[in-house]
């Protein structure tokens, strides 16, 4: 049944969110620390496990796949409800701070992507990055 998959997905999200909220309380932060990430890990583990096969295969699996496929439309709706007007009104300082943070972070992606990768021909033209 499709609802089994949807229910499993809901269970993962709720459990992840609870853990994230508790983690936040423990750390004394007024935010959810990684709730969604924990929920994703849970779903990955469950969908790879034999015991939960009946909840992730066949019709039940298509209940999860439906929401996975709804992801992009939901992100478009999310974009449409952003406070873009406030970002535009933020003035030059907000613009410069936001743009600079993004540009520097973009530049770091290739550097940090090398962490944990075996050294190979890639580092022929650049210095060693540890």
């Amino acid at each position: 049944m499709i609802i089994y998959g949807v229910a499993l997905l809901s269970g993962c999200l709720l459990l992840g969110m609870l853990t994230g909220q508790l983690l936040g309380e423990l750390l004394g932060v007024s935010a959810n620390v990684g709730g969604v990430g924990i929920a994703m890990l849970l779903l990955v583990l469950l969908s790879n496990s034999e015991r939960f096969k009946s909840l992730t295969c066949g019709a039940a699996g298509s209940g999860i796949q439906f929401w996975s496929a709804m992801y992009i439309p939901i992100v478009v709706a999310m974009a449409a409800k952003q406070n873009v007007a406030a970002a535009v009104d933020g003035g030059v300082l907000a613009l410069v701070a936001g743009v600079a943070a993004v540009v520097v972070s973009f530049a770091l992606v290739p550097l940090l992507s090398r962490i944990g990768k075996p050294e190979n021909a890639e580092n022929a033209d650049s210095g060693a990055v540890s």
Partner: peptide, 10 residues
């Protein structure tokens, strides 16, 4: 958003 993001991990 969070529901759909988690679903992508499937």
């Amino acid at each position: 958003r969070d529901f759909a993001i988690v679903a992508t991990a499937f």
